[in-house]
Amino acid sequence: MTTLHATSFKHASAPFPTIAARAIDVVKTYGRDEATVRALDGANVAIPAGRFTAVMGPSGSGKSTLVHALAGLDRIDSGQVLLGGTDLSALSERDRTLLRRDRLGFVFQSFNLVPALTAAENIALPLTLAGKKPDPAWQAELVAMLGLGARLNHRPAQLSGGQQQRVAVGRALIARPDIVFADEPTGNLDSRSGAALLRFLRDATRSYGQTIVMVTHDPVAASYADQVVFLADGRVVDELANPTPETVLARTAHLDTPDGK
């Protein structure tokens, strides 16, 4: 199963895209008795390594739940989540934490940074938590790419929203994780800063073969991805390769109708 390790493919054009993460018949319910909500209802998805995948779907379709399950942030009720060769559902809470620290990266919609740490310290956070030091060359390259050179010693409160999200991207990439999960990363940004951030994410995939999974409800944001996965009612209902805003919008319009699936 080692061949499934995405980390072995760090170049953009892998001849056969291997699978970085896979969800098999995943079921996740919230609440109890009559108030039960089936957020995921037998979801199946394969995230190809070295690609930028967008996950879309209407509110309540389970897109965030799916990504949380893939990232080991949430336990699932049944089914299987494989990250590379690792079965996440078999891991303890501590092992999942260590896996997140060592093999995954995260960008959230807001409040991405620890207010007490400088930009540089925030970027290095996953590594310092593990008691490691960042690779200086890689750090310098990331900082240059994200245009944060002059801001490294600033605290989050002194950075603009766009700069804060770029620091978050830097932190997600610093440990060269197997997968970066981004949950509505542009949700709180104006369109220009949002576009810049999405370009960084796409460049990370193109230049370094970084696997990225992004949850979004914005067709324009989704169009930066290599492929789009559509969810409805807790299941994957459609996929779209090489999306454009128009094709994405067409699919989502179709999904939003009651009998869309």
């Binding site: 501590r94 260590l98 620290r101 060592d102 995260f106 409040f111 620890v114 207010p115 938590l129």
Partner: peptide
């Protein structure tokens, strides 16, 4: 709370 959630998400263990 949110800061703690963030730290935990990026890999701070409970012991830490």
């Amino acid at each position: 709370t949110r800061e703690i959630g963030l730290l935990r998400a990026v890999g701070m263990t409970r012991a830490q």
